[in-house]
Structures are given as structure tokens and as C-alpha cells.
Simulated scan of single mutants.
Amino acid sequence: MTGPIEQGFVDVGIPRELIDELVEAYSEAKRRYRLGDLRPSAVEGGRFSEAAFRILEWESKGSYTPLGTTLSKVPTLVNQLESCTSSSDSIRFHIPRTLRAIYDIRNKRNIAHLADGIDPNTQDGTFVIGVLDWVMAELVRLFHSVEAAEAQRLIEALVSKEVPALQIIEERPVFLTKLTAGQRVLVVLYWQSPSFVTRHQLRDWLPESDRRNLGTNLGRLEGSRFIHRIDDRIYLTELGIKEVEAKDLLAPAD
């Protein structure tokens, strides 16, 4: 499926194989991070960076290192891109130097961390994800010709969250685990976030037994600040996201 992110890249001529590699790597890293999987192999950004460097090569030189062929070493790539004076400063300097930081983090994995009580996986994973977010937003801003805020909105809508507690059948969620009525509302909202869900959609998606007390359950969830309602639109708040993840409501059936 081609969404607005992918289509915007296609429209300016970026090769499809590079778009697919970039988006798949970004989405996978974000999903792993969201689920708390901070293993270096899961959130290290190498695959994303290699796709991004190839896009920078394509933009600045009109050609790129084929997929399956080893890229030049990062310092060489950075120097080559800096010499492309016809490209923007972001293509020449900002994005390449930012991507280089990911490699620096990955390559120091075997260096001992100080015994300061800080989990290096959490520390490094959080940094790398922040870098991926910034680079993706910058690429969207550059190639989609949109403002930074719009670029951020587009990338937030890009990542679909893993919700093993649901199976989607004919575009409708089917619950695979035993949850309370309120928890089912939260899981559906989590599945759709950061977008909203309408009350009509909830009534259509939830089991019939939940529909009779939907108003009461929404009131309780809003009172706990897990959801926020604007007219008919219902959003999951950051507190709601934490509630879903802390209570492990996404776990698949045993």
C-alpha cells in the first residue's frame, strides 16, 4: 500500500526500492522501540541509515550504490556528499553528519559503559530513535515541500503499531484476548493512534455487549485522562498509551 509519505517520494522520482527500504526500516525500528525491545539489533538504525545515504547519493549525484552492494565507509560518504555543492546544506551536511552519529553509537557497543546505573540499551536506543525521527522528518520536508510541522504529522501517521491482541478481519478488529470493556476501548484507540476514532466507529467495532454501556465507559476513561473527546472524535492520550503498555493489554492470547 502506498501512503502519502511513499507517494511524495515517488512523485519526485526517488527509486521505489529505496523508498521501500527506508520506510520499512523506519517502521520496524519504531515498532520495536514502542514495544520496549531495546536490543541493539532491533533499534540500531543501520538499515535505515544505509537507505537514507543512498537517497542522498541519488539526489546529489543522480546515481546511488545498488542495494546488495556495500556502501563506502561513512567518513567517505560524508566527505563525498559535502563536495556536492549544488545540493542543499541539509543534503550535504546536516543529514549525513546526523546519520554518522548512529554508526558511532553502534560501533561503541563493545566499549564498557560506566557503572552509573544507566541502562545503555535504553539510553542509546532512545537517542537512535530520535535521530531516525529527525532524519525522516527532514527527508519528508525536503522532498515533499512541506513545513516541518506537516512533515512531523505525516511521519507520525506512518507507523502502524503492533497490537497482537487484535486480528484485523475485513478491516475490522477482532479481539483475541480477554479484556474488560474499557480496556477494549483503549486497545482500539491504541491501534488507531495517533489518529482519532469516532464514537460510531467504536460502536461498530466493539462487541455488542460493550455497546450498551459505551457512554459510561467513555466517561470513566475520560475521567482518568486516558482519552480526550472533541465532539465525536476520541483520542488516546499519552496517559492512555502508558496504561495500555503498562498493563500489557497488547499481549497475544496464550
Rank of each mutant, 00 (worst) to 15 (best):
I102L: 15
R92W: 04
S72D: 11
H113N: 13
V78Y: 06
L38H: 09
A101N: 10
Y103C: 01
D104R: 15
R54Y: 04
S86D: 14
L77G: 02
V128W: 12
A51G: 10
S90L: 15
T76Y: 01
V131T: 05
A115I: 08
E147F: 04
E156Q: 13
L56D: 06
R47C: 02
V135N: 03
A52Q: 07
Y103T: 12
R153G: 03
L56C: 11
A52N: 10
G36A: 07
Q80M: 10
D104C: 10
L132Y: 05
R39S: 15
E156K: 13
S63E: 13
S145R: 15
T126P: 05
S87F: 05
V74S: 05
A115S: 13
I95K: 01
L71V: 05
S63W: 10
I155N: 01
F48M: 04
E147P: 00
K108I: 05
I95V: 07
L114D: 03
G130E: 05
H113T: 15
N110K: 09
R97C: 01
P120Q: 12
M136V: 00
K61V: 00
I155W: 03
Q123M: 14
K61S: 11
H113L: 03
T76E: 12
R153A: 08
R100A: 11
I118T: 13
P66G: 05
E150P: 03
Q123N: 09
S41N: 09
E147C: 01
K73T: 09
Q123S: 15
E57I: 07
T126Y: 11
R100M: 13
E156A: 14
V43R: 03
F48H: 02
V140P: 00
F143Y: 15
H144G: 01
A101Y: 08
W134N: 04
Q123K: 14
E82N: 08
K108S: 12
L67S: 05
A112R: 12
D119Y: 12
W58R: 03
G68V: 03
E156C: 04
T122P: 00
V146W: 00
S60Y: 09
L114Q: 11
E138P: 07
N121C: 04
E44Y: 12
N110T: 13
P75N: 08
V131S: 02
E59F: 01
I95F: 01
C84I: 00
G45I: 09
E138N: 08
Q152P: 01
L139R: 13
G117Y: 05
M136Q: 08
D133C: 01
D89N: 13
A101S: 11
E82C: 07
Y103N: 12
T65G: 11
I155C: 02
L71R: 12
I111H: 15
L132T: 02
P66I: 07
